[in-house]
Amino acid sequence: MAGKVIVCRCEDVTQSDLDHAVALGYSHLEEAKRYTGLGTGPCQGKECMVACALYLALAAGRPPSEVRPFTSRPPVAAIALGTLAGPDDPGEGGG
C-alpha cells in the first residue's frame, strides 16, 4: 500500500524525494526545488515552502535559523495572458 508523505501537493513530491535530493547534495531549498520540482506547481510554494525548507535544513544538519525562502517570483496569483494583453488605460483614476 502506498504510504507517501506528500510534502508538495501540486507536484506530488514526497518526503522520500526530499531525502533523496539531500543525499545527492541538493539540500538547499533552491537546489531541491530544481531537483524535485517542489514549489513549481499551481500553488508556487504557498502551501509547501515552509515545511520543505525546514525539513531540508534539519535533514542536512543546518540550524532552522538559517532557513531562507526561495525567491518570490511574480505573479503571486496566476494571471491570464488575456488580462495582460488588454489595452492600457492611459488615464488615472482616484480611489
Binding site: A85, G86, P87, D88, G93, G94, G95
Partner: peptide, 9 residues
C-alpha cells in the same frame, strides 16, 4: 480583452 486601469491612491 479587458482594458487596464491606473489607480493612484
Amino acid at each position: 480583452l479587458p482594458a487596464g486601469e491606473r489607480l493612484r491612491v
